[in-house]
Amino acid sequence: MMNKILGWLNGALGVKEFQPMATEEEIFPEDGIVSAPEFFEMPANPHGGLYLGPECTLLVSVGAQVVGGQPVAEIETPSHIFEVVSPCSGTVAEQLIQNGQVVEAGQPLIKLQRP
């Protein structure tokens, strides 16, 4: 049911549904860790307000089955939202951050277990 709702919302927002990557393209991380991208665009705050850093929202929970190419997290900066996708199929074994937590570039987000 949740996938149908997310699919509808993505369609309403003009976002295409993700395409699972081909099995031969999947690369299981050596330690099973999926991390934040190594880069963030950190714009200066022109209004002088306090900006703590990019906040992360996990899109999956422990026990969820994911496929390669599936979005597993979103990292939001004041000017962009970065989507973190799973590099392979597997089961989410552990959440290494909390939703809304400020993250750094390259910080581990989730741990995957082989299917």
Rank of each mutant, 00 (worst) to 15 (best):
Q70R: 07
P115S: 10
P71A: 02
D31R: 05
G11C: 10
G90W: 01
P71D: 00
A44G: 11
V34N: 03
N3Y: 10
A22M: 09
A64N: 14
E74I: 13
E104W: 01
F18I: 06
S89R: 10
V60R: 00
D31M: 08
F40H: 07
F18H: 05
V66E: 05
L13M: 15
S61Y: 04
F28G: 00
V102E: 04
M2F: 14
L52H: 13
N45D: 15
P43F: 13
G90N: 08
V84H: 02
E41Q: 12
V66Y: 05
C56F: 03
G100P: 04
P71K: 00
T57F: 06
L109F: 05
C56N: 04
S35K: 11
H47A: 12
P78T: 02
V62N: 02
E17W: 09
A105G: 07
P54V: 07
G106Q: 09
K111R: 15
S79D: 12
E74S: 11
E104G: 12
F39E: 15
L50K: 15
G90L: 04
E24P: 00
I27Q: 14
E38H: 11
S89V: 05
L58Y: 02
G48K: 09
S86I: 03
V103N: 00
V34K: 01
G14A: 11
A73I: 04
V62P: 01
A22K: 12
C88H: 02
E76K: 11
G14P: 06
L13C: 10
L96W: 02
V72K: 00
E83N: 08
L58C: 04
G63K: 05
F82M: 13
C88A: 15
L13R: 12
I5P: 04
S86T: 04
Q107A: 13
G100L: 08
G48A: 10
V60F: 01
L96M: 10
L59M: 09
P43H: 13
I97E: 09
V34R: 03
M21L: 14
W8L: 15
P108N: 06
Q98W: 00
K16F: 07
R114E: 12
I5T: 11
A64L: 04
K4H: 14
H80C: 08
G48H: 09
N99V: 10
E24D: 12
I81K: 06
G69A: 03
I27H: 11
I27K: 15
A93G: 05
F39G: 08
E24M: 06
Y51G: 01
A36T: 02
A22W: 03
P78L: 03
M42P: 00
V84T: 06
